[in-house]
Design a binder for these strands. Structure first.
Length: 779
DNA sequence: TTAGGATTTG
């Protein structure tokens, strides 16, 4: 991208330069210095008309002033631009623009004596691998009236419901469907893109280009595109878009709050505040109006007979036959089924032998067919791919469960079937890379990376289960975390003793309540010691709907400690939504570190935001400040966990109290800390169960009151995590196997304490399990 | 020119 036109916001460039470039001071621009990986930055104080040299090449000259040295005698330098780059620059560079020049050649300036500028000049051209970054300010009407500044082309964008047959237009849209660039039957690559916009009109565009890189860089449904010079025509009674001469596109991530950085192969493009605003508006519209959850999956999630999109890294490739080609890929997770291996000649297999061997249990073979072969052949080992609409098929005999799963990328482009190469700057790739680096190849059998099918498989074999239980019976399925010096006490003795006391026991778990394990999760207030049920999603939805009736107060937007965006839904309700992004050091943080507050959002919208941002706090406006909703709703959402406050013990403080955390050096946004500054008494998730224990001398009911220790599962996470739910169910099946006689039950070693419970009518002794945990080989 | 969304059947 040799010439880039960038925007300036409040005097600062939003787009960072490549990180390997370092700024070079004017006085260091001397012959004999190494200027590789250096850039010079200056402001345009003079430019000359574009001319042609004798050899036919274009030539453009500008003078840059170094503001850092503006008080020096020599503070300006000539920049000579050659070839295509001269033309590109002449078209967009304006007086007053700030320019960065990299990859330049330095030479003595023959005119230094006359013009009084720097003794050297800088020469740049595309051939020399130079890059020019132009930081331009929005050309305002007022500025255009002054003679020295000319106006950049002003583009008009047509909403999708105003498109007319036979016109060439500029437009914006949210990607509803796309086919990544594929080889057409003609001479070009083709990409099909269906867009929607707030007018709710759909437009399908068919785009051609000989260079796939010149087609829109769309990676997922929900991305936002800007098309320039697209031709509108009618086909089969429907309006459609098609590339016309000069077609150009920009693509943006569609996530609300993500940096607005265009993806394009255009050498020159305009992109300023107005465009940024349009993208941001489309993002929030799409977030509230479109359902854009794709069929993405990890290898650990695959099932036979489905179509899915896979984000992965290419480890190996090989030719198979004329119409099919093999890709070996991994995503760091393990497929729960045996996967097929496509037989190929060792000499045909491309890829690092050591890596292929090391990852052999984590890679899967994907066979791609027909039109995808050409693209597959060109892929580089190690590159990151998104393969769209892979088909999984269970091979072999139908009644044999163990027959391996096959992965096919069939011919054709139905449903967007195809292969896309993702750049390393892509957020999903960054996430995947970090995950791949964390994969423990030696012990890839850890529980985290294990799929549920594997877990089931662990006990699939009855003999295994028997021997596992036998082992558990002899030893103990639970262990003590303290007080090992205590001796065992029989249950009969405990039942005949007064409370309070502590005992070590050895007993069997005859039964437990609740049998439906999800009912064991409650919320506990450690201040008033009350327990309550975990509210269900409907309650929250109701409260959100209620609060959406009050529109966000415009006075409470964009304060010193948060930035706000507000929009109105396009449906009949015309609901107003505001999102306030809390800043740190006056800057927005990365989405994964960001706390945001939302007004007027629905349950679905709030839920979507939690997938992307660190913390979400639902709020509403009052006269003077934002405030929390009713405490029956979670006051904070982090990931999939909803945090609640105790209604009795909380005294909510104004939301601006949060700004004290935002001002910390590294805000960690811990729920406990957030709760504290907001005056909320945080309710904690606990497991509450009643265990009926027997030991041959008697039976007693002991309560389990456990945040995390007993099951080694955080109670806060279990309601939203299938894996943990299965793990807990398996633990219970092991310590209390269903349908067994007393003799066949395993032993538990536990500590219990007795305590008195009195009310006006009666006095009882209760027992509670403590300092006990499920044995490691049970969980 | 090509494809014009709407799963292969290897």
């Amino acid at each position: 991208m040799p010439v880039q036109l960038l925007k300036i916001i409040k005097g600062k460039s939003e787009t960072l330069l490549p990180s390997h470039l370092q700024k070079e001071d004017l006085k260091h621009l001397q012959e004999g210095f190494d200027h590789t990986n250096k850039y010079f930055q200056g402001i345009v104080i003079l430019s000359y008309p574009l001319t042609k040299l004798r050899d036919g090449r274009n030539f453009f000259k500008v003078v840059l002033q170094d503001l850092d040295n503006s008080f020096s005698r020599i503070n300006s330098i000539n920049i000579l631009i050659y070839g295509k780059m001269a033309e590109d620059c002449a078209n967009v560079i304006r007086h007053g623009d700030t320019i960065v020049v990299a990859g330049f050649k330095l030479a003595k300036s023959p005119t230094a004596r006359e013009d009084g500028r720097h003794g050297c000049h800088l020469e740049v051209s595309e051939e020399a691998g130079s890059a020019v970054y132009i930081y331009t300010r929005p050309r305002t009407t007022a500025a255009s009236e002054t003679a020295s500044v000319s106006v950049a082309p002003k583009y008009v964008y047509t909403p999708l419901n105003h498109l007319k047959d036979g016109t060439i237009v500029n437009l914006y849209g949210v990607v509803k469907f796309f086919k990544p660039p594929y080889v057409s039957k003609g001479t070009d690559y083709c990409s099909v893109v269906t867009l929607v916009d707030p007018s709710n009109v759909k437009l399908t565009c068919t785009l051609f280009n000989g260079n796939p890189d010149s087609l829109p860089k769309i990676y997922k449904v929900g991305d936002i595109v800007r098309f320039h010079r697209i031709k509108i025509k009618e086909y089969n009674g429907q309006i459609q878009g098609i590339t016309s001469v000069g077609f150009a596109s920009l693509t943006f991530d569609g996530t609300v709050g993500a940096p607005v950085v265009p993806r394009t192969s255009s050498k020159v493009y305009t992109f300023m505040d107005e465009e940024q605003k349009t993208v941001e508006e489309l993002r929030v519209w799409a977030a509230s109006s479109l359902s854009i959850s794709g069929p993405a999956a990890k290898l650990s999630d695959v099932q036979p007979m489905l179509f899915f999109d896979l984000t992965c890294q290419l480890v190996g490739k090989a030719k198979v036959d004329g119409s099919s080609f093999l890709l070996k890929v991994w995503d760091g997770t393990k497929c729960p089924y045996p996967t097929w291996k496509v037989p190929v000649e060792a000499r045909d297999l491309e890829g690092e032998k050591v890596v292929l061997h090391q990852l052999q249990n984590l890679t899967v073979d994907i066979l791609v067919y027909d039109n995808h072969v050409q693209l597959a052949k060109s892929l580089k080992i190690g590159s990151f791919l998104r393969i769209y609409s892979i088909h999984t098929k269970q091979g072999g005999a139908e009644n044999e469960n163990v027959s391996p799963i096959e992965f096919h990328l069939h011919g054709g482009t139905c449903y967007g079937r195809g292969i896309g190469v993702l750049p390393e700057s892509n957020l999903d790739v960054k996430e995947l890379k970090a995950f791949l680096e964390s994969v423990d190849l030696a012990g890839s059998q850890n529980m985290e990376s294990m799929s549920s099918v594997e877990l089931d498989g662990m006990f699939k074999n009855i003999t295994d289960l028997e021997s596992h239980l036998q082992k558990c019976q002899q030893l103990s399925v639970t262990v003590l975390t303290d007080h090992q010096h205590l001796k065992n006490t029989e249950l009969k003795t405990i039942l005949n003793s007064t409370a309070p006391q502590q005992y070590r026991i050895r007993a069997k778990l005859r039964t437990y309540k609740p049998q439906k394990l999800y009912q064991s999760i409650k919320l506990h207030c450690s201040k008033c010691n009350s327990l309550q049920e975990v509210p269900d999603g409907d309650d929250f939805d109701c409260i959100l709907r209620g609060s959406a009736v009050t529109a966000p107060n415009p006075e409470l937007q964009n304060t010193s400690w948060y930035d706000s965006v507000m929009w109105t839904t396009q449906d009949q309700k015309q609901r107003k939504i505001a999102i306030h992004f809390v800043k740190h050091d006056e800057m927005l943080q990365q989405p994964e570190d960001t706390l945001l507050m939302i007004e007027g959002g629905t349950l679905k919208e709030v839920w979507k935001l939690t997938k992307r941002f660190k913390c979400v706090i639902p709020v509403r406006s009052n006269k003077d400040d934002l405030e929390l909703l009713d405490l029956s709703a979670p006051f904070l959402l982090q990931g999939s966990i909803k945090y609640y406050g105790c209604k009795q013990c909380s005294t909510p403080k104004p939301i601006k109290s949060l700004s004290s955390i935002a001002a910390e050096q590294r805000p960690s946004w811990e729920p406990a800390e957030i709760a504290q500054v907001l005056g909320i008494e945080l309710l904690q998730y606990v497991f509450i169960m009643k265990f009926t224990l027997v030991d041959g001398t008697g039976a007693l009911n002991a309560y389990l009151f456990d945040y995390e220790k007993f099951f080694q599962i955080p109670a806060s996470e279990i309601l939203t995590n299938n894996f943990l739910q299965q793990k807990m169910q398996m633990t219970m099946n092991t310590i209390c196997p269903p349908g067994r006689k007393l003799d066949d039950l395993p032993w538990l070693e536990c500590f219990i304490k007795s305590y008195n419970v009195r009310d006006a009518m009666k006095h009882q002794v209760h027992y509670r399990i403590f300092d006990t945990t499920v044995a490691e080989d049970v969980v």
